Computed example of a mutant assay.
Amino acid sequence: MFNNPSDDDIRQRLKQSRRIAVVGMSPNPARPSFGVAKIMRAFGYSIVPVRPAVSEVLGETAYPTLQAVPGRVDIVNVFRNASLLEPIVDACIETGAPALWIQEGIINEAAAERARAAGIWVVMDRCIYKDYVRLFRDQA
């Protein structure tokens, strides 16, 4: 059974991270991926949309794949169906992504464990925005 990192570990990871690649980020303001990314940007994170067929989201250049993103990302935040996580884990391993955050409602234990076995720090079935607010109430 997959267990998420402790609150202290999550707090530390969020403190040390600055650049978040959002896989499946929608250009539609009504979608959760758009709202969460917009708020995380307001909290000081650099957001990198990863979504094929769009050139930008929230004024940020969008990339078709994680492999196409220039430079290092600190967290890969996933808003995709659980059945699509395996190739995202492959991309995280290939690009050397240090952390994978699988959003609330998305559960694929095999993919999460494979990422963890490859040395990637993993959170699954949790909302990065909700955890940020809960863990940094005084700063949000």
Rank of each mutant, 00 (worst) to 15 (best):
G24C: 05
G24F: 00
M25Y: 04
P27A: 11
P27Y: 10
N28S: 15
N28C: 09
N28P: 11
N28H: 15
A30S: 15
A30N: 15
S33L: 08
F34W: 15
G35H: 13
V36T: 13
I39N: 13
M40N: 07
R41I: 04
R41N: 13
A42K: 13
F43G: 07
F43V: 08
G44Q: 07
G44R: 05
Y45S: 08
I47Y: 10
I47Q: 06
V48Y: 03
P49M: 06
P49R: 03
P49V: 05
V50L: 06
R51C: 01
P52H: 04
V54S: 08
V57L: 13
G59K: 12
T61K: 14
P64G: 05
T65K: 01
L66E: 01
Q67C: 08
Q67H: 07
Q67M: 12
A68H: 04
V69G: 00
P70F: 10
P70A: 05
P70H: 08
G71C: 04
G71D: 04
R72N: 06
V73Y: 00
D74C: 03
D74K: 04
V78K: 09
V78A: 09
A82Q: 11
L84I: 01
E86H: 07
P87Y: 01
I88F: 04
V89C: 00
D90Q: 02
D90M: 01
D90N: 06
C92S: 09
I93L: 05
T95H: 05
A99K: 05
I102K: 12
G105W: 10
I106H: 11
I106T: 15
I106L: 11
I107G: 05
I107K: 14
N108C: 09
E109W: 06
E109D: 13
A110E: 12
A111V: 04
A111R: 03
A112C: 02
A112L: 02
E113M: 12
A115I: 01
R116T: 02
R116D: 02
A118P: 00
A118I: 00
I120C: 04
W121H: 06
W121R: 04
W121C: 04
V122W: 08
V122D: 07
M124A: 15
D125W: 14
D125L: 13
R126Q: 14
C127K: 10
C127W: 10
I128G: 12
Y129L: 14
